[in-house]
């Protein structure tokens, strides 16, 4: 097979696109894990929920309100979906996760797994598994941009840019602001931070809300690219778990870099050996486990 420079670059760009989703999702998982010590299995389902908020807002909200011509536009969805899902996250944390902090952390994983099944089951019941396309892509993001070496869809470029912007903003907040320093301190030693008069339970609630809000944001960004389906999150989340294992959950920047580079690796595999594209990240995980079991950026527990 002839590997032209264009083809490789094109796949790398598409890989970067997938990688941006990996980055934003694994970052959300890492932020939640840092403070709650829970791996949020519902992350994929909440990502799906975010996409559905955008889809239903566009297709169903108008008729529901008696205004058939009303469509919740994309920009509103970018704001509303994370808020709705974040609020749901706050409810989940306050009513359920909160009761599990004293028992083995694995129960948190099991609880969120149950929640993921519930969400997925409910949506599968009302919507087709094969997916519905989202038509609310704004005019300005249609078409393609000439990147010299290729024509690249504008929307994909936008989705890379906005995902990275959210990732770096999160990094900035956590690593460079006072609020972030509370968060990091809470990760290290919650009881000490509480002793300094900081409301740790509130911080935990908001962190969970924020983390799942990020997943919903990614869902909205993904909606115009992939078709919106009840199972869109469930396979993605397993890949994201592998990404998290490879990167380790010790550092924010680590999560971002791992996500992006693994996405690009996946893109590259599509050129070199397409059948392995779905599994290359898992094989990478096996390799990392053999060489550096705690993950590339992980700290040994």
């Amino acid at each position: 097979m002839h590997l032209s420079y264009q083809v490789v670059l094109a796949q790398l760009m598409l890989g970067l696109n997938i990688g941006a989703f990996y980055a934003i999702l694994s970052l959300g998982l890492a932020v939640i894990f840092g403070l709650l010590n829970i791996i949020n299995f519902a992350h994929g389902a909440l990502y799906m929920l975010g996409a559905f908020v955008a889809l239903l807002g566009y297709n169903e909200l108008g008729p529901l309100l008696g205004m058939p011509d009303f469509h919740m536009n994309y920009w509103t969805a970018l704001l509303v979906a994370p808020l709705v899902v974040g609020f749901l996250g706050v409810l989940i944390e306050k009513t359920m996760l909160r009761r599990l902090y004293k028992v083995d952390h694995l129960y948190g994983l099991l609880l969120t797994f149950g929640l993921a099944l519930i969400l997925q089951g409910v949506f599968t019941n009302y919507f087709n598994v094969s997916g519905i396309s989202y038509n609310g892509k704004p005019e300005i993001l249609r078409g393609a941009v000439n990147l010299k070496f290729m024509m690249f869809p504008t929307y994909r470029l936008w989705s890379i840019a906005i995902s990275l912007a959210v990732c770096f903003a999160t990094w900035f907040v956590i690593e460079r602001t006072k609020l972030g320093s509370y968060l990091r301190a809470g990760t290290e030693n919650p009881s000490l931070v509480q002793a300094f008069g900081i409301n740790v339970p509130l911080m935990i609630t908001l962190t969970y809300g924020f983390g799942v809000g990020m997943a919903a944001f990614a869902g909205v960004v993904a909606a115009p690219i992939y078709s919106v389906s009840p199972i869109m999150g469930s396979e993605l989340i397993i890949t994201v778990f592998a990404v998290v294992v490879i990167g380790g959950m010790g550092s924010i920047m680590g999560s971002i870099c791992t996500g992006l580079s693994l996405g690009m690796l996946e893109g590259l595999t599509k050129v070199i050996y397409p059948p392995a594209a779905n599994t290359v990240i898992f094989f990478m995980m096996i390799l990392v486990l053999l060489v550096k079991p705690e993950g590339l950026f992980g700290k040994e527990q």
């Binding site: 359920m96 149950g114 519930i118 997925q120 089951g121 409910v122 599968t124």
Partner: peptide, 14 residues
Amino acid sequence: VTVVIGVTFVVCVL
């Protein structure tokens, strides 16, 4: 069925 299984999970864990 998936929903029921999910609910059972949640109730059982809680």
